[in-house]
Design a protein around this nucleic acid. Structure first.
Lengths: 110, 110
DNA sequence: TCAGTGCTTGGCAATATAGCCAAATAGCCA
DNA sequence: TGGCTATTTGGCTATATTGCCAAGCACTGA
């Protein structure tokens, strides 16, 4: 396989991997509504604050969110607002699982 | 967090997780062109056939591909052809990493 | 029925991830 | 300065993932 292509696949896989966790998807959805600071998210998620902080750091590393320190709070927001457009097709996959096992599906029109 | 929402996040995370590997992204791209059988893909990827078979099984479990046995070959194809639409936004994330670190980006028009 | 091809599964070692607690850091305000 | 709040980092254990080899299974064709 072409090295250039390999690098590209690696880069895309990293972004997807960062998104591929329920807590991080939750964070992405919330940040799509409005920016939040860490304690905010921690209350909603109900995990240890250090756990939430680490999830945020994964998302930041992947370039999905950016942080903004104000006083002693750190606010996070989406760096790429379209990130949720993403899910039209994920939803199709999920619907397909609920349906007949061999069908090839139409794509959603968005 | 609402249990219903949690289940939904779990389900979406599973699909993303299945996609979040360079070899599996490669397979998805190839299958977007045309169906392939396992040896085909193995040659292109250059890993052990058992490794490729396991990647295919991950994609199948996630509902992303379906298999079709003909003779003693197994052909795979995408179950949800739109899966590649997915990447417009992933590309934005990648471009954003190449650019100024704090910018909020426009979404691609597709 | 037997050998050969194509694919999957089991088992293993190496590596990565998740989540908690405790400790460290940074900024605020008295 | 000292104490407080908000957040990150280090360290740990439990668990999951990856990729190889070897073994097994399914189909084909002589």
């Amino acid at each position: 396989m072409d090295l250039n292509r390999k690098n590209h696949l690696d880069a895309r896989a990293k972004v997807l991997k960062a998104m591929a966790h329920p807590t991080r998807l939750f964070i992405i959805e919330e940040l799509a509504q409005e920016e939040r600071y860490v304690c905010d998210l921690t209350d909603m998620i109900g995990a240890d604050i250090s756990t939430v902080s680490k999830h945020l750091s994964v998302l930041k590393q992947a370039g999905i969110v950016i942080d903004d320190k104000r006083g002693n709070q750190v606010f996070y927001r989406l760096r790429v607002p379209c990130i949720l457009n993403f899910f039209g097709c994920v939803e199709s996959v999920l619907e397909s699982q609920a349906k007949a096992h061999s069908a090839i599906l139409e794509c959603p029109t968005r």
